[in-house]
Design a protein around this nucleic acid. Structure first.
Length: 251
DNA sequence: GCGACAG
DNA sequence: ATCTTGTCGC
């Protein structure tokens, strides 16, 4: 499907300094404004029309010394196609360098896909990253496709107000702080409450940030449109289930 | 030195 | 991420 920008294919053999240097370059290539060929409000998960955008969910599972990367492409409630790869683990988990651990595997999975999605939803940060080059930015730029990062925990940055007691659908901007390359106060994403119980104990929000070719507002609007019955957006859940299924058949 | 830290 | 039983609450 998509031709890869080889220069940005994650290379686990690089030195840490080289990785950080490449990340700064990727951040300069990244477009944090809308450059998409579909209507964000047309995104759905439970229904579908011929105009419903094609959304890709990406997730990983781990098995001993191997990484399973799974991609599920869905148009609304229809699974269009899926793919996966199993690759050796070549790099440890280091906060800020996640794309060098999982990125190569993910790109290989995309190379086996025959269909190009309208937008990709990743399980990890996008612009909410020290050098504005989280997993969703790195892979989005490498593939030059619209990309969004959805993380279950905040890597860096600061919510402008409390993220406790948010109702489903509510969001709070996440702004850059001193340890980030983005100018102080830049909105780099949002905390989005995807689900909430009527009463009792609360559910934590997810952290949405632009990967490539989408603004923070649009990224959050799209993920909001992907809300289902659970905390994680539907594309991520589909990919998670596929990765688990593949993993189970391997072991 | 101290604290923070996606998956 | 992954290893894992029960348990609380809708």
């Amino acid at each position: 499907m998509t031709r890869i920008r080889e220069r940005f294919r994650p290379d686990p053999s690089m030195s840490r300094a080289e990785m950080e240097s490449i990340q700064r370059e990727i951040a300069r290539e990244a477009v944090f404004e809308d450059s998409i060929g579909f209507d964000p409000t047309a995104v759905t998960v439970g229904t579908r029309t011929p105009e419903t955008p094609l959304v890709a969910g990406v997730d990983q599972a781990f098995l001993d010394d191997r990484i399973v990367s799974a991609i599920v492409l869905a148009r609304g409630d229809e699974i269009v196609t899926r793919s996966h790869t199993t690759t050796p683990m070549e790099f440890p988990y280091i906060p800020g360098l996640l794309s060098f651990r999982e990125g190569g595997s993910i790109i290989e999975a995309f190379e086996t896909l025959d269909t190009e999605p309208d937008v990709i939803v990743f399980d990890g940060s996008g612009r909410i990253h020290y050098r504005e080059a989280g997993l969703a930015v790195h892979i989005g730029v490498a593939l030059d496709l619209p990309a969004i990062g959805v993380a279950k925990a905040l890597l860096c940055g600061r919510p402008v107000s409390s993220t406790e007691t948010l109702a489903a659908g509510e969001r709070v901007p996440i702004v850059a702080d001193e340890e980030m390359s983005a100018p102080d106060g830049t909105t780099v994403g949002h905390a989005l409450q995807t689900r909430q119980y009527p009463n009792s104990h609360r559910i934590n929000p997810v952290y949405v940030s632009p990967g490539h070719r989408v603004s923070a507002d649009t990224a959050t609007a799209i993920v909001d449109r992907c809300r289902g019955e659970y905390k994680l957006p539907e594309p991520t859940r589909l990919a998670d289930a596929h990765a688990d299924a593949v993993k189970t058949n391997i072991e």
